[in-house]
Design a protein around this nucleic acid. Structure first.
Lengths: 360, 360
DNA sequence: TTGTACGCGTTATCAG
DNA sequence: CTGATAACGCGTACAA
């Protein structure tokens, strides 16, 4: 451990590990405390000293070690988000805004993808927390009992999105999925439809799907309409939509209106209908859910339910952030979703013929 | 500051700050070093002691403080990604896989969005590095001179994606954008097209757009075809595609083949064409770029260039990870892109009539 | 195999 | 307004 030419150490830039507070302090002729203050509490340090410190820091390429900073200050400035996947525009868009809003407050976002098995989310949440996340964004209802009891003990601020669940154990920033589907059904029923079918995603692990399915069943049931059981469960790709519409045409040929639980599925249903020579909306009405970017550009333009993805992301970030700074807990927020009427739904065929006859 | 009933402190779970190595050590009747070892070097601690430590740790809800751990071990287990936006499927998909691959090695990903101004990326990169990112994923060529010189000094492993740039200062994992567009042009020219137009995104800040535009110009120019200057620059929404195709139809009515630099634009071009009563591909051929999920479902199914988004994300993660563990530097990787021939392009009208005549 | 003791780079506390 | 110094919680030589 004999050091040769110890004097060289300070002069050789190559060996310079990394400038720390101490180096800056020495170079600027102040104490380490002052250096720290120059950065974190600029107001309580004299003008000239601060300038000098900041200048030499800049000069030395100093940047505070985040780990040391986090250790001492007990603030990581990291937040976490656990979502099913980034591969869905609807989640990516929300995260994009969430991350962006938080970034403006100096927070970085770590996103963990859980897939659609809610078995994974507890594990991911723990990882996120263990990683020092100071706040958390989740999606949908908390299904895993273990996660429920974990979240019951006060840890860090958490919000869940996409669903409005007044009874949830954590605050939610979402919309009423049940009401949303209901409004679509109502629109269709008002148009004169009586034979329905639904294309849904798996209800396992998704309270959103369950709510939409329940709304469908309840609506059809309570109004004595047909098709309460005509629900095709598939995944969330376009191809699933194409398969589902074929199944509906095959098994429930009397159907005149199909409600899709995502625009992706509706996309598939629309394009497969065209391929099959079924005209939309003349032969069959189709509505979607999400109001994806392409919804208005489909043929025909898709009637669908607009979902406040950006707003959920932004609001979740804002509320979580004020919870972090003011300590005021996030509130339950019910955002609006509304039906965007375009051209993929119209009165059913028989009814139109009836009306035509009546007009004559 | 008088503490009443000080004895209660240990009994009240509410006041229990957080279990640390020390607490676990005391509870398990071992030293803190053993606790640490039980987690990090399980092999060098006796079976029963390890079990006991792990059990009491579990029991106390102990989790190592990531900041302290990072400070001491000089490893944050965090990597960063700076991308334009998560709102584009193509980037979201890449990040999804990048993040997923790295997560399997115990790394969390922080993503920073820069928008399409490359002025922002240097700042974001510094933020990422200051936050303790041990490796970085970038998109495209490094444009900002400041960032170039920053990356020239050895910091942390960095790769850039989406472009194959052999001369880049950091390794890249991408594909040849020039060759990709060229292959589409070649396909179109072989079909008999002689009048071209292009729908492009802004070349500012995107070497991908520049490469595709250059390929277009070179191809048209070198083969004495028409339309080398017929390039409509727009943004990356469907609506931009609709506007662009109108502009082309209006300003360059002789056009028979248009190459779009993203599928989103092609989507807009396709749907607007239909609205205008222009038949694709009979009246005009359109090709896209990306092979988005919906490309095959459009009417007509879109001929487009498939891009290895997942593979770039996964490979970037793998290479960065081995760079982190083995020290072996990331390599330059040229991935394949290839033209997916579907139905949105066919021989131009005049030519078909000619052929028809010849056949008679 | 296990324990002791020190240091990682900051920020917070307390004097001055 | 500034300086000295004690934590922050963990990993790891070194000693036992």
């Amino acid at each position: 451990m004999v050091r040769l030419m110890p004097g060289k150490r300070a002069k050789q830039p190559k060996l310079k590990k990394k400038a720390g507070v101490f180096d800056v302090a020495r170079e600027a002729g102040v104490s380490v405390a002052t250096v720290s203050r120059a950065f974190n509490l600029p107001d309580i340090v004299s003008e000239d000293v601060r300038r000098r410190v900041l200048a030499t820091a800049q000069n030395l390429g100093y940047a505070a070690n985040p780990a040391a900073k986090a250790l001492r200050s007990r603030k990581t400035h990291i937040v976490g988000a656990a979502i099913p996947t980034l591969d869905y525009a609807i989640f990516a868009k929300m995260i994009n805004h969430f991350q962006d809003s938080f970034a403006q407050h100096g927070y970085m976002t770590i996103v963990a993808t859980t897939g659609f098995e809610h078995a994974n989310v507890f594990e991911k949440v723990k990882t996120l927390v263990d990683r020092g996340a100071e706040a958390l964004l989740l999606v949908g209802a908390i299904e895993d009992p273990a996660l429920v009891s974990y979240l019951k003990r006060p840890h860090i601020p958490v919000v869940t999105t996409y669903s409005y669940l007044p009874d949830e154990i954590v605050p939610c920033i979402g919309f009423d999925n049940y009401a949303a589907t209901e409004s679509a059904m109502e629109y269709l029923a008002d148009l004169g439809h009586r034979n329905f079918a639904m294309i849904a995603g798996s209800p396992k692990g998704s309270d959103r799907q369950r709510a939409r399915i329940a709304a469908y069943k309840d609506f059809v049931g309570s109004r004595n309409l047909h098709g309460a059981a005509n629900i095709i469960i598939r995944n969330f790709t376009i191809r699933d939509g194409t398969e589902a519409i074929r199944a509906i045409l095959d098994k429930y040929p009397e159907t005149t209106a199909v409600v899709c639980n995502t625009d992706v599925m509706a996309f598939g249903a629309l394009s497969e209908s065209r391929r099959l020579g079924i005209r939309v909306p003349q032969d069959i009405s189709i509505v979607g859910f999400d109001d994806a970017e392409y919804a208005a550009q489909l043929e025909p333009p898709l009637t669908t339910i607009a979902v406040p993805a950006e707003e959920m992301g932004r609001l979740a970030a804002e509320m979580l952030h004020s919870s972090l700074s003011n300590g005021e807990p996030p509130r339950f927020v019910r955002l609006d979703s509304h039906l965007i009427v375009r051209k993929s739904a119209c009165p059913p065929r028989a009814l139109k013929q009836l009306r035509l006859a009546a007009a004559v």
